[in-house]
Each structure stands twice: as C-alpha cells, then as structure tokens.
Amino acid sequence: MFRTLMLSAAVTASFAGAASAQVVVSSKIDTEGGVLGNLILAVLDHAGIETENRVQLGATPVVRQALVAGEIDIYPEYTGNAAYFFNRAEEPIWRNAADAYAEAKKLDAEQNDLVWLTPAPANNTWGVAVRRDVAEPAGVTTFSQFGQWVAGGGNVKLAASSEFVNSAPALPAFQAAYGFTLSPEQLIVLSGGDTAATIQAASNQTSGANAAMVYGTDGQIAVSNLVVLEDDKNVQPVYQPAPVIRAETLAEHPQIEELLKPVFESLTLETLQELNGKVQVDGLPAADVAQEYLTANGLLK
C-alpha cells in the first residue's frame, strides 16, 4: 500500500498542482498531527499569512503525497520517515538526530523541492518508559543506566507487543546494545497490543508491570507517571518532527522559516507529551490546545 502511494507520489510530482494564493497547512490524522498542524496554522494565521486549513488530512502516505504533488504546502513530518520515503530504511544514518535531519533535508531538497524547517528537540521513536516511582529510586533516565540496572538484578517487568519483543530492530537490538536480557518472566506480551494497552498496564501495574513499550511523545505517558528512557547509543532511528514546506511556497513567504523556528525549538519531549495529553486525555480540541500553548508562552508576537 505504502509503496503504491509513494510510487504515485513520484508520478504526481511531475505535474505539481496549480499554485494558489493561500498556504495550505496540513498534517497527519493522529493526535500529534492535530497538535503540530494547529500550531503551524495558528502561527501563520497570526502573522497575517492567508491559509487554508487541511489539518489532520489523512494517513502518512496520503499527506506526504499531497505535499509532493503540491496539493498542500506545509505539514509536520518525522525525520526518521525519510528513510522510508527514499527506500533507505536499513542505513545507520537515521539513528543520529543531526545526521538524519541533514540527510532528509538534503534528499528532499534535491529530489522534491521541499524544505525541512527547524525540527523539534523531541524524539517520537519506539522505546521504553518506566514508572517514575521505579526509575527515580533506581536513578535510571537513559537506556545505558537501565541496562546496567536490569543486568544488576533490577526488578523490571515490561509490557510490550509481541512485535516489539520479537522483531530484530526492537527489543533484541536494545538488549544487544545495552547489555541486558529480559527473561520471559520479566515480559508481559500483549499480542497485538498497542501503546495504549501497554501504558495502561504499567500505569495500573497489571500483573506487576512497571515498564511499557511507548512512542516517545505519547500523550498518555505524563499522566500515567512514566518516564521515557533516552536512547543514548542511538539504537533506534530518530523521529524528530519538523515542518516540511514546498520551496515555492517558502520563496513566496520566506518569513515562515523564522516564524516557526522558535515554536518548534520549544517543543521538547515533555512539552509534546503534555500537549498531546491535553488532546488525548482531557479531550480538548487540538486547535484550542495549540492556541493556548502559543499564547501562554509568548510565541505569538
């Protein structure tokens, strides 16, 4: 499916859409897409740039293709996804934040006339979060510390999907890199489980779970009192969100780059968790959450 879409994207790219005066702002349909898309939209609107709202447009391949085809002008994308856009998923370059960003920026500039603007210093990658009441006493904030702690007999019980436990780039890669091994008794495998289920398990200590498979910026993490382990040896590809804009649009509105820079720079892992949490946990509309954040932090000048 993804492949078909990307293939059509390549074809469509050759006849980019009719330029229109408005900047079409879009994003993915998921929670973070709602937050980031509305942040961009609010900033551009506030700066007096005419926009069209196509936030939460659809799944990743659709949004990406729409951008390449010129049907939308800007949307937030993750650096790690460039690995798939350019069919280079196996390469180690994507595991280093700076390199991954530079590579994605270079490839899209050369091949698609797209510009990657300043990314957020947050990594929404596949990883592990540990209950705060376990991590803090044990002094664990990074995967290296976690590895030592577990290897030294630390009492961990991880809730994860079977895919996370079994697929080579996931848990086995972490275990190899950080020198620890989880015994079957230390794993709660939720077949087909998603991060919502694993976080709930760790949060409610279901079957004694105290750690969970997570995506870094998940809105449930903060309210569930979990802390995300830092992947300090770069085992996983880095997924930093950054606005991607058509070069043509940027040329028309060059101020967009400087308008969005401080906003994305302010979006740390914890900030994104909190904003996502307001949408996901409290059920607030993403547009309100974005507006409130920008106002409260003086980002609408």
């Binding site: 078909t4 059509s8 074809v11 469509t12 859409g17 010129g70």
Partner: peptide
C-alpha cells in the same frame, strides 16, 4: 481492490486532471 489501495490509485489520475 481494498479501499485504501483504490484511493491511492485514484490520486494520480485525479491529481493530473486537477493540474492540467
């Protein structure tokens, strides 16, 4: 054809029409 795949296949011809 699964619906998502059909949607994907339609993006190309419709995008072309819109552009041309």
């Amino acid at each position: 054809i699964p619906s998502m795949a059909l949607f994907g296949m339609l993006i190309v011809p419709l995008g072309w029409l819109a552009a041309n």
